[in-house]
Amino acid sequence: MSTPAGLEAIREEFLAVEPRDRLLLLLEFADDLPPLPERYGDAPELLERVPECQAPVFVKAEVADDGVHVHATAPAEAPTTRGFASVLAHGLEGLSREEALAVPDDFPDTLGLTAAVSPLRLRGMSGMLARIKRQLREA
């Protein structure tokens, strides 16, 4: 397994700042979670709930001609969850299916967020990654 360049760059961004500032970086990602494409906005049942997260978050991973796209939606009151989804959506964007499937399952634990966010909360991001990879395997 190897971490693709986009996700690796995101990890380096997190590790380059002090632990307290990593939360603010996660907030930037939360602010920057792309809106759902209209075809999903009208049909939320096409998305999969991630029960490992405390907040209601839904994800959909798909493989198009131009590579992998991850779509996700989570309420504004759940910025941590939005941040997790945004990191994965940006980091996996445009990869081949094989590259995305090769992302190590413990990627969320390597962002240096464990102390700032807590291991329990990070489990939500691991759950999200696992569901994205399963969807890609089935896609």
Binding site: L23, L26, A30
Partner: peptide, 22 residues
């Protein structure tokens, strides 16, 4: 709050944050 980042999205002016987990 429950969410460790919710305070950062906007808080009452002058408020400080205490997180139950961390």
């Amino acid at each position: 709050d429950e969410d460790v980042l919710l305070y950062e999205t906007g808080h009452i002016p002058g408020a400080v944050k205490v997180d139950w987990h961390t």
